[in-house]
Design a protein around this nucleic acid. Structure first.
Lengths: 211, 211
DNA sequence: ACACATCTTTATGTCGAACATAAATTTGGG
DNA sequence: CCCAAATTTATGTTCGACATAAAGATGTGT
């Protein structure tokens, strides 16, 4: 029985490595910790660490899938009659209420760990871009006109807005503000940012009602 | 006389290294060329290469200053009565006419060199972000309301649009289209993208006329 | 129950970028 | 012509990324 035993153990090993790494990173900063140290602290071989996490950055930012797919999913799942902008705005506010980590909510130490590491900020930019690409693809899938630049332009605007808001959350977090205050400030920023886009995007990508 | 002799020789050395590196990169790809090879080909020591170009990426993308400052400068230099959006649009079209390298115009090989190298695309993202930050700062300097999120949101939109257009130029260049065709396609894309922003940004950051 | 095939972990080594230090060389000014 | 300063060179270390193969653990089929 339990063909999942091996898989379970794998998860355990992976989690142990990730936890150990995160602790070390928070204590001493991302760049200052070597993979060899992480392996030693987690009591595994160096190669085991790099097997699970091909790049060192993955040890600290282990959110690739869900982060990248977020915006595209929100747009793809929106209700008939709702525009892409409205869907993203609604979902952003909901995520803000729940202090979603994907909006940048974390601890001051974690936020500073990222801000202080060129490697991690670069990785974050990589994720931003992949997220924008996924969103552009979702919009293109609807738009149907081949070679139309509009979906890409719209995706760029929406992703850029999300990114600016994410960065504000990170900055406030690094500055030590508590989640409630951050949510209040960023709610206002998001109101402003989404209102700003309203005139341009209110009529774009409004999901058709089923005929 | 000529207190510039030393400086001149420095420029010469720097240029020789840069040229050698670019040639090697185009021939064999950015990642495949080592700094040791560049140094050997340019007949200097390895340390001389890294002295002039602290990071390997700088050998291929030696445009930091002018690229990062571009958008902010355009906004800062605009005429009274002109909005930030209008200024950037005007300048974009002018740069398009002159096939400006800062818009992404180059050779197919160069464009592919960048696209094929994770290191270089990451560096490019870094430049995008610095450019956006510079633009945000320029807008903030005018807006005057401290803590206002608007300048950042606007800078994000404008920079994102420029970035999307830049990427289209790069893609078409890598695909081997000639400059004239690229200019035509991207002119249409830019019309679309800037028109899209018009409803939202037409009235933002309109430079006051001197009283 | 046992042997086998497969997956996971470990061991070892190479490569190259980034960085540090200091010596050697070149250059321009006094 | 010599000195001070800048430039280039020489040497070495660290660490992430990658490749290979051996060793160990696990589940399956007979």
């Amino acid at each position: 029985m339990s063909a999942h035993l091996r898989e379970h153990k794998k998860r355990q090993t992976r989690q142990a490595i990730s936890d150990t790494a995160t602790r070390l990173f928070l204590d001493r900063g991302f760049e200052a910790v070597t993979i060899a140290e992480i392996a030693a602290a987690a009591q595994v071989a160096k190669m085991t660490v790099t097997n699970y996490f091909p790049r060192k950055e993955d040890l600290a930012l282990d959110v690739h899938e869900v982060f990248v797919a977020g915006l595209a999913r929100t747009v793809a799942d929106r209700e008939p009659g709702e525009s892409a902008l409205a869907a993203l705005r609604r979902e952003f506010l909901a995520a803000l209420e729940r202090r979603d980590a994907l909006l940048g909510f974390s601890s001051p130490r974690f936020a500073r760990m990222i801000a202080d590491s060129p490697t991690l900020t670069a990785r974050l930019r990589d994720l931003y871009e992949q997220r924008e690409d996924a969103l552009a693809q979702a919009l293109t899938a609807e738009a149907a006109a081949p070679g139309d630049f509009t979906p890409r332009a719209v995706a760029a605007l929406l992703a850029a807005t999300h990114r600016a808001l994410f960065q504000q959350v990170m900055e406030l977090t690094a500055a030590g503000r508590d989640h409630k205050e951050i949510a209040a400030v960023v709610a206002e920023s998001s109101r402003l940012a989404f209102d700003l886009l309203e005139p341009s995007l209110a009529d774009y990508a409004v999901r058709a009602r089923p005929s």
